[in-house]
Simulated scan of single mutants.
Amino acid sequence: MDPGSGVPVTLELGGVADPGLGFALTAAVVWGVYIYLLKRLFEGYPPAALAVLINAFAIAWYVPVVVSDGSVTAASLTAFGMAEIAVVAVTVLSTAAAFVLFLVAIADGDVSYVTPINKVVPMFVLPMEILLLGQVLTPLEVAGVVVATLAVYVANYDPGGFFQPFVKAARSRPAQLALLSAMCFAVSDVGKRVGLQELAIPETLWVPLLLAGVAAVLLPSAVRNPPSDVRADLPKFALAGGVVALGEHTTTLAFAILPASIASPIINTQAIVAVVLGGLLLGERHFRIRIIAAVLAVIGVTMIAI
């Protein structure tokens, strides 16, 4: 149900929300591949500089979409009021913080360890929708939160005492950063839903605003901590920028149709893609356990979305 309008959202084939479901699933695959690329291609880059460079290429890739769409006009920009500015600013700041925290987390820990923890974003999205948009919490959604939390336990599992995984997560810097990043991503997801649905900001305006805003926020830090030489890696940045442009576009289209409590769980199934790639192609440890953690995370957030 759309908490803003009280209108049920249909996810069945042939239902009115089919495009939103398709966009969300596409975004999940794109972002899962992107997480793998971050670890595989850009290890050692300062997080802020990495984000600024990738976003710059993403904006370049997205310019033809904005031009061909034609919905971004001077009138659409001048129509911005304080509400639009505030929502865009909060979304940009939370997205920038979430991305940097996640980069630091995967730099310190395995992709297949950090990702299941980081992708319990809907655990935080749903309470915010309850408080801000009047979403009603059902028993199934409560059960979903429990299952998603169990995924964090499993991701931290090592042979030993029952409470050992909790101790590990509490002491693990990657785990702490991943959870903090998840909270920031949750704020960003709710901001996307409000901006695209309640405030009706055009999708092709939202994407460049978000990309440019995140780059602007991180630019001072990027200037203070620049990478040594990026010329050899420019093709890699172009590739990553194209992936980000596609991911942001499909994510935006999903949030323009679905409520955040449905779009966020679907998009965050990217954990499965990232964990599989991390285990198979990067040879990370405890692959089977972390696959279980990723599956539990997906089950939990799906139960939240039902």
Score class of each variant (00 low, 15 high):
residue 234 L to A: 14
residue 234 L to T: 11
residue 235 P to R: 04
residue 235 P to V: 06
residue 235 P to G: 04
residue 235 P to C: 02
residue 236 K to D: 08
residue 237 F to I: 10
residue 237 F to M: 05
residue 238 A to K: 00
residue 238 A to F: 03
residue 238 A to H: 02
residue 238 A to E: 02
residue 238 A to Q: 03
residue 239 L to F: 12
residue 239 L to T: 04
residue 239 L to Q: 02
residue 239 L to S: 03
residue 239 L to I: 08
residue 240 A to K: 08
residue 240 A to N: 02
residue 240 A to W: 12
residue 240 A to E: 06
residue 241 G to C: 06
residue 241 G to R: 08
residue 241 G to I: 00
residue 241 G to M: 05
residue 241 G to D: 03
residue 242 G to W: 15
residue 242 G to R: 11
residue 242 G to D: 13
residue 243 V to C: 04
residue 243 V to R: 04
residue 243 V to Q: 08
residue 243 V to I: 13
residue 243 V to G: 09
residue 243 V to W: 03
residue 244 V to D: 04
residue 244 V to P: 04
residue 244 V to C: 07
residue 245 A to S: 14
residue 245 A to C: 12
residue 245 A to Q: 10
residue 246 L to Q: 14
residue 247 G to P: 07
residue 247 G to K: 04
residue 247 G to C: 06
residue 247 G to D: 05
residue 247 G to H: 11
residue 248 E to Q: 15
residue 248 E to V: 06
residue 248 E to F: 15
residue 249 H to N: 02
residue 249 H to C: 00
residue 249 H to Y: 15
residue 250 T to L: 09
residue 250 T to R: 10
residue 250 T to A: 07
residue 251 T to M: 14
residue 251 T to W: 04
residue 251 T to A: 13
residue 251 T to E: 12
residue 251 T to S: 13
residue 252 T to L: 01
residue 252 T to W: 11
residue 252 T to V: 09
residue 252 T to D: 06
residue 252 T to E: 03
residue 252 T to F: 08
residue 252 T to H: 06
residue 253 L to W: 14
residue 253 L to E: 10
residue 253 L to T: 01
residue 253 L to F: 13
residue 253 L to S: 02
residue 254 A to S: 14
residue 254 A to Q: 05
residue 254 A to E: 05
residue 254 A to F: 06
residue 255 F to Y: 15
residue 255 F to L: 01
residue 255 F to K: 00
residue 256 A to T: 01
residue 256 A to R: 11
residue 256 A to I: 02
residue 257 I to E: 13
residue 257 I to H: 06
residue 257 I to G: 09
residue 257 I to S: 06
residue 257 I to N: 06
residue 257 I to A: 11
residue 258 L to G: 14
residue 258 L to C: 08
residue 258 L to S: 06
residue 258 L to H: 04
residue 259 P to Y: 00
residue 259 P to I: 04
residue 259 P to R: 03
residue 260 A to N: 07
residue 260 A to K: 05
residue 260 A to F: 07
residue 261 S to R: 04
residue 261 S to L: 05
residue 262 I to V: 15
residue 262 I to T: 12
residue 262 I to A: 07
residue 262 I to W: 01
residue 262 I to M: 09
residue 263 A to I: 03
residue 263 A to D: 07
residue 263 A to Y: 09
residue 263 A to F: 12
residue 264 S to Y: 01
residue 264 S to D: 09
residue 265 P to W: 12
residue 265 P to L: 13
residue 266 I to R: 14
residue 266 I to T: 09
residue 266 I to L: 15
